[in-house]
Nucleic acid binder design. Structure first.
Length: 509
RNA sequence: GGUCCGUUCGUCUAGCCAGGUCAGGACGCCAGGUUUUCAUCCUGGUAACACGGGUUCAAAUCCCGUACGGACUACCA
């Protein structure tokens, strides 16, 4: 292992919205780079033109912007190793494919997709699996069996071709994975993968090796689904005579229940997002929800994701991005898949809600208040938020916890009335109104002291009086400390609500 | 089918590499406490080493096998 500069990349394919598993992969790359003082690069792998989806690349960029994950180089930032989009690097790849042909490690193949499909079907019918490998390549249409002249002629007449890797025979390929340790595979079970497609574009395998090499990538941290192609990649580095980067294959994100990996379906079924941002499919118009639109704080979302498969080795759970980077280590990433738990995601958001200062929270909450048709002073909202934030998991839940701070009850919860509006209530509340009207210092402490003293003197039960009082002020049996509420809404409003409430509920016979 | 990877409370996980703590923490859930309501908060509880062999004085930890799960098996990434 050399001590070259740490350079890692996230290389998504712009075929749709980014799955949170992809976000986590990017996050681990980012944390790894930050911890080591290295560079983090965004490369777009769009070598499959047939799978291009409009807007997907912008979505990916916007998703990371929202998450607060920044790239040091890439499509948005530029850098010394660009271009960072594979479709713009098209001219680069062919020469490398040809280099392998020249050195006898790859070959031209002229079999059409249809021919190969037919062949696979035929084998399947005989309960065998067709593999384009050493055992089969001699009976197929390629430059290994064709004469040089025949091959030349086919090429000159523009016959469609692909370039295949000539998989070495009888090799035991040993690989080192930073997470899984040593992995060994026999080359005879591998096939002659296509490196260069007939449309003039490289496949992932070629492009990924060439670009990682050219961009001086030191560590490839990617999803577990790539593990089966690791031997091919190792052999490709070997064929080119290049030093391979180090590899780490991350475990999968699993669905909350049942078996298998987390999919969009699970989110729809169980009511949680599997994408960072909302996404509308340009073809079907179908919309998928996103963490941002569902009201998650980006920090909470990232924090939650980071702990799904990695832990710091101590008992900390709440981390800023900087703290995570400081604590991050690839060997504290687990080997097994992590089941996604929507409940814990909410818990994380709640923790961030508590952490966020009231001023910032008030700013986030204000639009929701205005949506209810209420004009509110930001300083007032700040105080309200301070009183109710611990009762909500999301900013959008704040309104139902605090509506009574912004307008008087329009109705009174029927169950609460039945339970708490007793025969004595009317007289008690009338007397309380008079009592409160005489208080100048309407601070929470002061009104509480006076009202409690009054209750003691009259031998009124706390539960009876204060619940009835709450009912008139709030309209329901909810909300924070009652005296905090009336201190905030003020004496005039308190008296007004008592008056209205007394009139509405009246005397109970 | 083949290849490879994985398996500790319901969930996320610590412990495993350098065998020897009542297997620790968090989420959830349950109970109790605080409280004028609800929530928070505090205390306590629930609950796991997939199974079977082996090595060893001693195995969650090392080895083998089985089961189960997953990924891959395209001119997709």
């Amino acid at each position: 292992m050399s001590n070259r500069e740490i350079r890692v990349r996230f290389a998504p394919s712009p075929t749709g919205p980014l799955h949170i598993g992809g976000v986590r992969t990017a996050l681990y790359n980012y944390l790894f780079a930050k911890k080591q003082g290295g560079k983090f690069i965004l490369r777009i792998e769009d070598t499959d033109q047939t799978r291009f989806v409009a807007g997907a690349e912008d979505y990916i960029i916007e998703a990371f912007r929202w998450c607060g994950i920044q790239f040091d180089e890439g499509v948005t930032k530029g850098g010394d190793f660009g271009p960072y989009k594979q479709s713009e690097r098209k001219a680069i790849y062919r020469q490398y494919a040809e280099q392998l042909i020249t050195s006898g490690q790859a070959y031209y193949a002229f079999d059409t997709a249809e021919e190969l499909t037919a062949l696979r079907k035929k084998y399947e019918a005989g309960k065998k699996t067709f593999t384009y490998n050493a055992a089969e390549r001699k009976q197929l249409k390629n430059s290994l069996v064709l004469s040089e002249a025949e091959t030349q002629k086919l090429l000159e007449t523009n016959t469609p071709f692909v370039v295949r890797f000539k998989m070495p025979e009888d090799r035991i390929v040993r690989m080192d994975d930073l997470i899984r340790g040593e992995v060994t595979v026999h080359s005879n079970v591998l096939d002659d993968k296509v490196l260069f497609k007939s449309d003039g574009m490289p496949t992932y395998h070629l492009a990924n090796i060439v670009d990682d090499h050219l961009m001086k990538i030191s560590h490839v941290i990617r999803g577990e689904e790539w593990l089966p192609s690791l031997p091919l990649h190792i052999l490709l580095y070997e064929a080119f005579g290049w030093e391979a980067p180090q590899f780490a294959h991350l475990p999968l994100l699993l669905k909350p229940d049942g078996k298998g990996k987390l999919s969009k379906r699970d989110g729809d079924r169980m009511g949680f997002p599997v994408f960072p941002l909302q996404w509308t499919d340009p073809k079907t118009g179908e919309t998928s929800r996103g963490y941002r639109e569902d009201g998650y704080f980006p920090d909470a979302f990232i924090n939650m994701l980071a702990l799904l498969g990695w832990n710091p080795g101590d008992e900390r759970e709440i981390f800023s991005l900087e703290e995570m980077a400081e604590a991050f280590s690839i060997d504290r990433v687990g080997k097994s898949g992590s089941r996604f738990d929507p409940e814990k995601a909410k818990w994380f958001n709640h923790q961030y809600m508590l952490k966020t200062d009231n001023k910032e929270l008030a700013g986030l909450f204000l639009p929701f208040i205005e949506k209810e048709g209420v004009m509110a002073d930001i300083g007032y909202v700040e105080k309200v938020v301070g009183l109710v934030k611990e009762r909500a998991h999301f900013v959008h839940e704040l309104w139902e916890q605090s509506d009574f701070f912004f307008r008087a009850p329009a109705s009174y919860d029927a169950k609460a009335v039945k339970k708490r509006w007793k025969q004595d209530s009317y007289n008690q509340m009338s007397a309380l109104k008079v009592l409160l009207a005489g208080i100048d210092n309407f601070s929470s402490e002061n009104t509480e002291a006076i009202v409690k003293k009054w209750m003691e003197e009259n031998e009124y039960g706390m539960g009876v009086v204060l619940n009835a009082f709450r009912l008139l002020i709030v309209g329901a049996l909810k909300g924070p400390h009652l005296f905090d509420i009336i201190a905030l809404i003020g004496r005039e409003e308190t008296l007004r609500r008592l008056e209205t409430g007394l009139h509405e509920l009246g005397r109970k016979e």
